[in-house]
Amino acid sequence: MIVDILLWSVTAAQVMLVAAMACYAFRVVRGPRAQDRVLSLDAMYVCAMLLALTVGIRTGSDVYFEAALIIGVLGFVSSVALAKFLMRGEVIE
């Protein structure tokens, strides 16, 4: 009973997170300008991090927390680098 509730909610959360990632992926493909693509990519990193957390709850394993932390750090660094590129790349062109 309890396991069923938990399993159902974890599955629903994972489906919702994947749907959110699909929305962001649509924005990455179609986004009118580069800043929309960078914004959606940053949000997709956050969604992937949350997905790793839910997988950790589903399996009861601690490993996925570290994976989520690494995904978060890499997402921050890459988003900052891309934003800096958008700022400086136009200056030269």
């Binding site: 919702m16 997170l17 749907a19 929305c23 959606s40 956050v46």
Partner: peptide, 23 residues
């Protein structure tokens, strides 16, 4: 279990709402 389920659903719903807003 109930608290975990409620928090999971709330967090996923908020994230999905943000994604729909981006669209």
């Amino acid at each position: 279990a109930l608290l975990t389920a409620a928090l999971l659903l709330a967090g996923a719903t908020l994230t999905l709402a943000g994604a729909i807003g981006t669209l």
